[in-house]
Design a protein around this nucleic acid. Structure first.
Lengths: 128, 128
DNA sequence: ATCCTGAATCGACAGACATCAATGCAGCCC
DNA sequence: GGGCTGCATTGATGTCTGTCGATTCAGGAT
């Protein structure tokens, strides 16, 4: 059943509207941590932008100056974060994006429309 | 002019539409890495959701079971990532969200509207 | 000036992480 | 079967990071 460890319980209505409780924060942090590496970001973008929606590992590995085990490790972390999934098909393994997860992250980072921000460009009290 | 190190050059049209080049990936990863810690996520959400748009450090610190220097350290990382900014006002220091950055992240994680995903529930591969 | 308070910085340390070479495992082909 | 290829796992290693106590710095109050 392919790990798919956790990181599924991201129900939070939005990081920016109410304080996160600790459990939510821990879950969310796992996903952002998975995104917090240049190699994984490039892997994710290569997978997500691929016409057809899936990529063979053999197309990913040569794009980096890293060993094959290292790429495999990064793919595993992205998968455990719920950002991608994979399937073995004969000799090759194919990865694809899980758009529900990126959608969820985008929603979490989106502020409610009518939120009036205090105008920082002309603060009331500060001259000079 | 308050560090504000880098992490400003996030022009990328979207993580999910085209492969990121390495420099873009490195910049973006810094921001996501800043979000990849539960304490920083909670700090950010406490700051962002505060009515009035700003929070005094003295209101943040007691919400955690961590030392004051540790909180200060996390705030510094969030600030270096461009997610928050701060100002000293007399004895106290106030922090607020930089919504441009979260907006940018949300945009980066958002797929272009008309993107037809391959239907994973009924793979078409075998036919034809 | 002296003291006090709130916040940032410094130095140290344990745990986490990225990376590699070596190995293991699964599926193809001869 | 035997060998080959593609990918995952293991074990080791150097670096990064989260945390703390101690210290320092900035501003107000006495």
């Amino acid at each position: 059943m392919l790990g798919q460890d956790d990181a599924a319980g991201l129900c939070c209505p939005g990081l920016l509207t109410a304080p996160l409780d600790e459990d939510q924060a821990v879950e969310l942090a796992k996903v952002f941590k998975a995104l917090g590496d240049p190699v994984r970001l490039r892997l994710l973008s290569m997978i997500a932008s691929r016409a057809g929606g899936e990529v063979c590992v053999c197309d990913l590995t040569p794009a980096f100056d890293l060993s094959q085990p290292t790429i495999s490790h990064h793919l595993k972390l992205l998968r455990q974060a719920g950002l991608i999934d994979c399937e073995r098909r004969g000799t090759w393994v194919y990865y694809w994006l899980v758009p529900e997860m990126t959608d969820r992250l985008a929603a979490i980072l989106t502020r409610p429309a009518g939120e009036a921000l205090p105008d920082r460009t002309a603060p009331a009290g500060a001259a000079s």
